[in-house]
């Protein structure tokens, strides 16, 4: 934590223009307050409670739970994703408000892990969603999960945690990849139409 603070200060000194300072400040607030949507997709769900409770106390770092995707900043995908789950995860991710981040826990979202030969799980999550931080391990310890959050914070502060922008810019690629696995059971159009248009706003 101290380390991070020092890094922040060093960064701040390097900034030149006032707009850069504003951006830096906004990023600082974003990184200090992370509303986490813990989607217990698999085994990793068991290490989320220790992370947020008394022993490891993620709230020290500004990480707290959110109930619905509308309120959340980061979705924590804990473990392997069955195809059925992936659909819900994409749905949940698209409902979140930008800027939004994805943390994937465990080996399974990286390469399939234990279930590399299973017929019902996806093997590589970042084909379907922009993953900002992956925490490897089966399953990652709470310390590792916290380390993942620290990495995410660092990324946010540097302004590099822009998975959401990547998803928006490369939506066709992601949707095609999703289509490969869902086939004709893709999510209905209204859930993601705005990615293909400007999106109405007022």
């Amino acid at each position: 934590m101290d380390n991070l603070n020092k890094k922040d200060k060093a960064q701040l000194k390097e900034l030149k223009s006032p707009m850069a300072v504003v951006d830096w400040a906004v990023n600082w607030f974003r990184k200090q307050s992370i509303f986490m949507l813990a989607y217990g997709t698999g085994c990793g769900a068991i290490e989320i409670p220790p992370t947020v409770t008394a022993r490891y106390d993620a709230e020290r770092f500004g990480v707290r739970g959110a109930a619905t995707p509308r309120q959340a900043d980061v979705i924590v995908l804990s473990g392997y994703l069955a195809v059925k789950t992936l659909k819900r995860v994409i749905r949940t991710y698209e409902q979140m408000q930008e800027p939004k981040y994805v943390i994937a826990l465990g080996s399974c979202p990286i390469n399939g892990g234990m279930y590399w030969d299973s017929y019902n799980t996806i093997k590589q999550l970042d084909r379907y969603l922009p993953v900002d931080v992956t925490v490897a391990g089966c399953m990652p310890r709470p310390e590792a999960v916290l380390e993942g959050f620290m990495a995410l914070k660092d990324k946010i502060q540097r302004g590099e945690a822009e998975g959401a922008r990547d998803y928006r810019d490369n939506i066709e690629k992601y949707k095609n990849n999703q289509k490969e696995i869902f086939g004709d059971k893709m999510l209905p159009g209204y859930t993601c139409d705005w990615y293909f248009s400007d999106g109405g706003s007022f």
Partner: peptide, 29 residues
């Protein structure tokens, strides 16, 4: 069905000692 991994099939595909490492993952808690 959100969690189905096909465990029984995977055990059939592995030798006994390989299978022993995955049975614990049937139930996380």
């Amino acid at each position: 069905g959100y969690l189905h991994r096909g465990f029984e099939k995977m055990i059939e595909r592995r030798t006994v000692l390989q299978a022993f490492t995955i049975v614990c993952r049937i139930c996380v808690p």
